[in-house]
Simulated assay, not measured.
Amino acid sequence: MTVSGGKSLVSHNVYVFSLKLNQWRLGEPMLVARYSHRSIAHKNFIFSIGGLGEGQELLSSMERYDSICNVWESMANMPVGVLHPAVAAKDQRLYLFGGEDIMQNPVRLIQVYHISRNTWFKMETRMIKNVCAPAVVLGQRIVIVGGYTRRILAYDPQTNKFAKCADMKDRKMHHGATVMGNKLYVTGGRRLTTDCNIEDSASFDCYDPETDTWTSQGQLPHKLFDHACLTLQCIPHMTTHS
């Protein structure tokens, strides 16, 4: 979303950052202007999922960017349009957990997209009630991290079963999460206090699945919410000998 003349405009724009050049450039625009959507990368593709459109309508559409061909293309619509689901990619599939409808009611669904077949299916489950939560792949499971709750759920796609993990200290939403060294790291977000006020957070916490425990890693330099949190893998340069 961009702001022009005091009015908010929903944008098609895509910006690409070059690590090599240390600069941004304008990329190929999306087919549909949207905001509050979810994006996820898989191989050479970026998927842009749902969100709100130019008329504030809830979008069920999804489009895919091919970084090799530098084009966006429309893909199959998700079965149920939702806002702020937890999204993860694993084994040629995209998984959307929960989210909320246009009336801000939690949606108790898992929606699964098969990438090579361009098809969706959905499953209803009472285990899901997350909104504004991230999801990460941790080992063979997908972990849904909070979302207006302390609860951490680990989902096994092979068995279609959930396991409850140790709760977070606070009821969190709008936070970031990433995996590094087989541990889960959670950054910032917003937390619900005991008297139901909302506070911005600078927390930096680590979950160890082997011990099922949380530990604080200190504080972030600034309070953050609705931010991205990623692990960057450094690949050493190969040297050749003649």
Rank of each mutant, 00 (worst) to 15 (best):
G5P: 15
G5L: 12
K7P: 00
K7Y: 13
V10D: 05
V10Q: 07
S11E: 10
H12F: 11
H12V: 06
N13G: 07
N13F: 05
V14L: 10
S18V: 07
K20S: 13
W24S: 07
G27N: 03
P29D: 06
P29M: 05
M30V: 04
M30K: 10
Y35E: 05
K43H: 11
F45H: 07
F47K: 01
S48W: 00
S48K: 00
I49P: 01
I49L: 03
I49F: 01
L52N: 06
E54N: 08
G55Q: 14
Q56F: 11
E57D: 13
L59G: 03
S60P: 03
E63D: 12
E63N: 05
D66P: 03
D66A: 03
W72M: 08
E73Y: 02
P79E: 03
G81M: 01
L83C: 02
L83E: 02
H84Q: 07
P85T: 04
A88T: 09
A89L: 01
D91I: 02
L94V: 10
Y95D: 00
L96Y: 01
L96W: 01
F97H: 02
D101Q: 13
D101R: 15
Q104W: 14
Q104P: 02
Q104S: 14
N105W: 10
P106A: 14
R108N: 15
L109N: 02
Q111M: 08
Q111T: 04
Y113N: 01
S116C: 06
S116I: 04
F121C: 04
M123W: 09
T125S: 15
T125D: 15
M127Q: 15
M127V: 02
I128Y: 06
K129L: 08
K129H: 15
V131Y: 03
A133D: 08
A133K: 10
P134E: 12
G139E: 08
R141H: 11
I142N: 02
V143D: 09
V145Q: 05
T149F: 03
P157A: 03
T159K: 13
K164W: 11
M168H: 08
K169E: 15
K169A: 11
D170E: 14
K172V: 15
K172H: 05
T178K: 02
V186W: 01
R190T: 13
R191E: 12
T193H: 11
T194D: 12
C196P: 00
I198N: 11
S203K: 09
F204E: 06
D205Y: 04
C206F: 08
Y207V: 05
Y207R: 03
P209M: 07
D212P: 12
T213A: 08
S216N: 14
Q217H: 10
G218Y: 08
G218F: 09
G218A: 09
Q219L: 11
Q219T: 12
L220A: 01
D226C: 07
D226Y: 06
D226T: 00
H227M: 10
C234L: 14
H237P: 08
M238G: 01
S242Y: 12
